[in-house]
């Protein structure tokens, strides 16, 4: 019955064509450019083999960027996801106003990163920003949230987590629909017993949500860009740089398209592992296909 072989291809023709032009072919082109010294301007480019990659692994700022991506990864997958779960558990009980509370928690997800960046820029402003003014009430010293090289990356992760935690919470709220409400409530009020129940019963039931939340958070942390770009552009002196941001600076500020492509390629290869993991988990149940 489904024997006419051309039928699915007819349906796929247009979407696949567009996808190839704007997504697949560009990926291949970037892979190719990463082996050249193209400056983004000259009509000619020369093939330089692995030189970009060799240079990359000696580049101290690339190392900082990579290391920062790992911090993002830990912040997103290791902190945002559990916090999202915690808040979901908290709000997934029967109480007055639970709907309003949830709606308010969702709000950060509707904002663009440009807006989020702006909001946080006046929260984190060092001299009279909201956070330092607030600390000032308690007589605490001002912190250079975006200027202290040892702190800045964590400040950025904090700003991004505002949205990421909301997202993890949404996923867990959906997952919790499979869990009886009494169980959730019992987990909170039952002390040690409740904790055991949470670990042994609820958490396993939430496994699919966890897989998605963790992998997506990992992938997002590896391609983080917007917040960094809006708030610090990777500064001061690359201390808050991440791979995506460093790539953008190299390619579009310093006119090293070849080198920038090499960074994108490395980023791509690192992400690839997680993408494969994601697909295996999400598409695993598709054996019927």
């Amino acid at each position: 019955m489904k024997s006419q072989k051309w039928v699915p291809y007819a349906f796929l023709a247009l979407p696949l064509l567009m996808y190839s032009i704007w997504v697949i072919f560009p990926i291949i082109q970037t892979l190719y450019l990463s082996f050249t010294d193209w400056d983004g301007v000259s009509p000619e480019l020369s093939f330089i083999g692995w030189d970009n990659f060799k240079l990359l692994f000696q580049d101290p700022y690339f190392k900082i960027s990579l290391w920062n991506n790992i911090k993002w990864l830990i912040g997103f997958a290791g902190i945002s996801v559990p916090l999202g779960l915690l808040i979901a558990m908290l709000l997934d009980q029967k109480f007055k106003g639970s709907k309003v509370y949830k709606t308010l928690m969702y709000l950060p997800m509707t904002l663009s990163f440009v807006v989020i960046g702006q909001i946080w820029s006046w929260i984190l402003e060092p001299r009279c920003g909201a956070l330092n003014s607030f600390l000032g009430i308690f007589g605490l010293k001002s912190v250079g949230w975006l200027s202290d090289p040892n702190i800045v990356t964590y400040s950025l992760i904090m700003a991004a987590s505002w949205r990421q935690i909301s997202y993890a919470m949404v996923l867990y709220l959906a997952g919790l629909k499979q869990v009886p409400k009494e169980l959730v409530e019992a987990a909170w009020v039952d002390g040690a017993n409740g904790w055991k129940r949470f670990i042994h019963i609820i958490l396993p039931m939430l496994r699919p949500a966890t897989v998605v939340a963790v992998t997506v958070s990992v992938i997002d942390s590896l391609r983080a860009f917007d917040i960094v770009y809006v708030l610090t552009r990777g500064g001061p002196f690359y201390s808050s740089s991440v791979m995506a941001n460093y790539m953008y600076i190299m390619a579009f500020n310093n006119y090293r398209m070849g080198y920038g492509s090499a960074i994108a390629t490395v980023q791509f290869l690192i992400t690839l592992g997680f993408i494969v993991f994601y697909m295996r988990n999400v598409l695993k149940k598709e054996e019927a296909l």
Binding site: Y19, W22, V23, I24, F25, P26, I27, Q29, T30, L33, G40, I219, L222, R223, F225, M243, A244, M247, Y248, A251, M257, G260, S261, I263, A264, T265, Q267, F268, T271, F274, I275, Y278
Partner: peptide, 12 residues
């Protein structure tokens, strides 16, 4: 394609 770092696409 939906999960790749979009920087891969920028230049091309």
């Amino acid at each position: 394609g939906m999960l790749i770092p979009f920087q891969m696409l920028l230049i091309p």
